[in-house]
Design a protein around this nucleic acid. Structure first.
Lengths: 126, 126
DNA sequence: ACAATCCATTGACAGATCTCGATGCGTTGT
DNA sequence: ACAACGCATCGAGATCTGTCAATGGATTGT
């Protein structure tokens, strides 16, 4: 019941329909919601969740595609496609080392996502 | 570098392709990955992220559909559809009170999701 | 120079997703 | 009994997504 945080109210032109209870108090910005959803969406596929966990379990050196295709049981182009989505979402980084591309997770991003879920028990930003 | 957690190795028949680094150490189970992905997927849409934050900001009483259509700027059937996905994912509950359906968040589920992201800085289960 | 390896990109396809209008069911109030 | 309201479901449309085989670029090793 204490500080409910929240930032600016979303730029929604709708009439705010005061009906039952006052949700008008405020919530996540549209932009913040988009950014959060983009990262959640990247984790919204079982294969990508496994890829992230595999990379995380591969130590500090990171993992290359050839490490991942076997465990997830998918073709190399498909794994490459999933990795691109994870990189674009900012959840993992890609570093070309010679012939191989090494992927490593971004702990800060994952931690920030986790905090968005656990902070005050509700959804929030940063 | 300490306890890397992880549970059983996934039931993957692939040859484990030992190539560059040892990711074979283990990661999330296929079933665990599916369950996590199902919840992340529910949060993988900007509208649903906003819905969750709106419901969270609506206090203990919960929010009804009529409270939500205005702020998100979508039709009533569409909002109803999104709420169904959130309920099926276990992120919110639905309670019919007379004419209205009240939705409330499930803090434990959100917190568990957050812990899956922050525990040991990596992806884990429970 | 040549062959081999790792990886990304392309093209294609089936299936899932988001959105709406129209309709129907249950509850409330007259 | 009847009208009004809140909500879910249905049907349909456009778009997005996951997957693969085929191809090509870049690097390594002979």
């Amino acid at each position: 019941m204490p500080s409910r945080t929240v930032l600016t109210i979303a730029p929604v032109e709708a009439a705010a329909a005061v009906c039952c209870s006052p949700v008008a108090g405020g919530a996540l910005d549209v932009g913040q919601a988009q950014q959060l959803a983009r990262m959640f969406k990247a984790l919204g596929d079982p294969t990508r969740v496994r890829l992230v966990s595999l990379i995380a379990a591969s130590g500090t050196g990171g993992a290359c595609i050839c490490d991942l295709t076997g465990p997830v049981g998918l073709s190399q182009p498909t794994v490459s496609h999933h990795m691109r989505l994870l990189v674009e979402a900012g959840l993992v980084t890609r570093e070309q080392r010679g012939k191989w591309a090494y992927y490593a997770i971004v702990p800060d991003t994952l931690a920030a996502l986790g905090r968005a879920l656990t902070a005050r028990g509700e959804l929030s930003a940063q």
